[in-house]
């Protein structure tokens, strides 16, 4: 991450506050799910309600696709879907 350039400052100022920043590329929060939303494409009319309500931004618009790397399984999409196209299922281990 190019943190070497701070080494002299850290050494002389007795500071330890230089961190390799955390980012969600490492932390796939999808591992938190107990339940996962599963889409029945035949029922979906691409209305975008699920996309609009997803608090994690895990549903893409246009062609509805769920990003299971980050979906935490809250189930809001399944509640909001007016066509019953989203169903919450047990997360496989």
């Amino acid at each position: 991450m190019g943190l070497e350039r701070y080494e002299e400052f850290v050494k002389r100022s007795k500071s330890t506050l230089v961190y390799d920043p955390g980012w969600s590329c490492d932390n796939l929060t999808g591992a938190w799910r107990s339940m996962r939303p599963v889409m029945d494409a035949g029922r979906c009319n691409q209305c975008g309600l699920c996309w609009m309500y997803c608090p994690e931004g895990c549903i893409s618009h246009g062609n509805i696709v769920i990003d299971y790397d980050y979906c935490k399984g809250c189930g809001i999409c399944a509640v909001e879907c007016k066509r019953g196209a989203l169903r919450m299922e047990r997360e496989p281990e």
């Binding site: 991450m1 943190l3 701070y6 050494k11 007795k14 330890t16």
Partner: peptide
């Protein structure tokens, strides 16, 4: 003695 050690990656998490 103080070495100016940088905390390891992820130590802040």
């Amino acid at each position: 003695p103080w070495t100016g050690e940088v905390a390891p990656a992820g130590a802040g998490r």
